[in-house]
Amino acid sequence: MRAKVLPGRTTTAAEGEAVVFLIGMRINHFWAVHRWLPVLLAMPMMLRELARDRSLGMLHHLMLTGSPRTYCVVQYWESKERLLAYAAAPDRLHRPWWGRVNRLVRKGGGHVGMWHETYVVPAGAYESIYGDMPPSGLGRAYGAVPLGDGVQARDRLRV
């Protein structure tokens, strides 16, 4: 299914704080497939679980690659509470897989690297603009609205 292009300039409809979670991995040694492949495969399983049950709080995600050895997932969440609740839920995929992935990384002899960053961005401290684009990023996660004529980035950033 192709996303519909929204004509003209739009911005995110987000109100209040925005929660952005970045998680990534780096394959340090391609030949150690048994070390990095389970790490690589864990994220799509969790993303499918989150997409099936929107009540868990993930609004949208985007998978990126920086090179054949680096991968990143950008996730947009309803709230930091929902993100933390999912991470700790014993009946969801994250908690058991996080234990496995940590063991693989710790005992992996440097074959695979992992990182994550969480940003809780206060209202007025984020800004977005999309020109003739389907909803993307914050606009896809929180919805997109037309941007008024003459509205500048400084008007959207209120800090």
Rank of each mutant, 00 (worst) to 15 (best):
D91L: 10
G148V: 01
E17H: 07
L147R: 06
H116V: 05
P90N: 07
Y119E: 01
R103I: 03
M25G: 05
L104T: 03
A144F: 02
D53Q: 11
R26K: 11
K4C: 02
S67N: 11
A51V: 00
L56A: 04
T65L: 07
A14E: 11
G113K: 02
W36N: 09
G131K: 10
R52Q: 13
G131E: 10
H29S: 09
H29R: 14
E81D: 10
R48A: 13
V151Y: 06
Y119C: 07
P134L: 03
M63Q: 12
L62E: 04
V151G: 10
G57C: 01
G124L: 12
G66K: 05
G113H: 04
R54L: 03
A89I: 02
D53N: 14
R140K: 14
G124R: 01
L64R: 06
R103G: 07
W115L: 14
L62Q: 05
G108H: 07
R158D: 12
V105D: 08
L59Y: 01
V5E: 13
A87K: 11
V151N: 05
A32T: 05
S128P: 03
P90H: 08
V151A: 07
W97S: 13
A153G: 02
A18S: 08
M1K: 05
V20C: 06
R95C: 05
W97H: 12
M133N: 13
L93K: 12
A13H: 05
V73R: 00
L56N: 13
V20P: 06
W77N: 05
G143T: 05
L83Y: 04
H60N: 09
P134K: 06
S55F: 01
A42C: 13
G150D: 01
M1F: 03
S55D: 11
W31T: 04
M25Y: 04
L59Q: 03
S79L: 04
S67D: 14
P90Q: 09
V105L: 11
H94L: 09
P135G: 08
P122I: 09
G109A: 07
S79I: 01
R154H: 08
L22E: 10
V159A: 15
Y86V: 01
H111E: 14
L40P: 00
D53K: 12
E127Y: 09
S136L: 13
P135A: 14
S55A: 09
R26S: 10
R82Q: 09
A18F: 02
L47V: 02
R35P: 03
V121I: 15
P68W: 14
V112E: 15
R100I: 12
G8M: 11
G108K: 06
P44R: 15
L50P: 07
G150I: 02
G148C: 04
M1P: 07
G108L: 11
S136A: 12
V39Q: 14
R2T: 07
P96W: 12
W115V: 03
G131W: 06
L41D: 09
M43N: 11
M43F: 12
V73F: 04
P38C: 09
T12E: 15
V20M: 12
H94M: 08
V112A: 09
A32C: 07
A125T: 00
L6T: 00
P68C: 08
S136C: 09
L6C: 03
L22G: 03
R52C: 03
